[in-house]
Amino acid sequence: MKTETTAPKAHADRDCSAGEPGAPRRGRPRSEAAEQAIFAAVERLMEEGAGLAELSVERIAAAAGVGKATIYRRWPNKEALLIDVVARLDVPEPVLCGRGVRDDLVGMMEYMRQAGLAKRSRWMLKAALGQMHSWPELRNAYEERVLRPRRELARTIIRRGVDEGVLRDDLDLDILAEIVMGPMLLRTVLWEDAPLDDPTLPERMVDAVLRGVGADPAR
């Protein structure tokens, strides 16, 4: 599994509200129908009460109506498949529009707000994320494949804000990222009963933070 992360690029011609699917894995062309059947089978088994640790490749293949080889042609092991399932349940990561640091910060915060709402409303996602804490191998793989690229996406925005003079350059980048993202993380992770249904929340949070850490308040 790769440990290096490539900084995401800005795409001015894309819709910022839409996420991107995960990068396709190399190998032979895959049957979309078979893959969808496999995803649906895992979700159905979870709906019936199966925990992630209880899902074997054999059980998933039988539920999907495919052979084990069909699964192994797409994923090297069960952990890789389950990571894709959880990522599919989760909110797709945001795409940087590149119109400006503030817009990208608002987009990142909106993504976090939507992820928080999804976790509250989709019990399967909440259950899967909770179960990963007791399965270190899967948790570490999810962290590497899903969480680390999203953290790097946030760092990319912050780094560009510093380079463009929008954010202070005398603070550690990680601390600066935590200051900017902290208000939304507080609501989505620590205070799970805090309101998230206000669509203006990301913009108001970003503007409030920028007034405190902006190198030039006028900007």
Rank of each mutant, 00 (worst) to 15 (best):
R88P: 02
V101L: 08
C16K: 09
A127M: 14
L190E: 07
T156R: 03
A10K: 11
D207A: 12
R204T: 12
G165F: 07
D163S: 15
P94L: 11
S134P: 01
T200I: 13
R145P: 06
H11G: 10
I175G: 13
A37K: 11
P29W: 06
P21Y: 05
V146C: 11
R26I: 03
R14Q: 05
A12Q: 12
L117Y: 13
P136W: 01
T200A: 14
L117H: 06
V180I: 15
R74D: 00
P8M: 05
D13H: 12
R159V: 06
R73K: 10
G161E: 12
I175V: 15
G27A: 08
Q114D: 02
I158A: 02
A18D: 10
R139L: 08
D198F: 15
V85Q: 01
G65E: 08
M181Q: 15
R59I: 03
M109I: 08
C97S: 05
R14H: 10
A141T: 06
P195L: 01
S31I: 04
G27S: 00
I83C: 14
G214D: 00
V162S: 08
L173R: 10
M205G: 00
R211H: 12
R204Y: 10
F39Y: 14
A208P: 09
L186C: 02
V213I: 11
V101C: 02
I179V: 15
R151M: 08
A194P: 10
K119P: 03
K9H: 05
M1E: 05
M181Y: 11
E143Y: 13
E178L: 14
P199A: 04
N77A: 05
V106T: 12
R151H: 14
W75T: 00
W191E: 15
R113P: 01
R160Q: 10
T6I: 15
L210R: 08
P8R: 08
D169M: 04
S134V: 12
G67A: 05
L55K: 07
G165A: 07
L129G: 04
E79G: 00
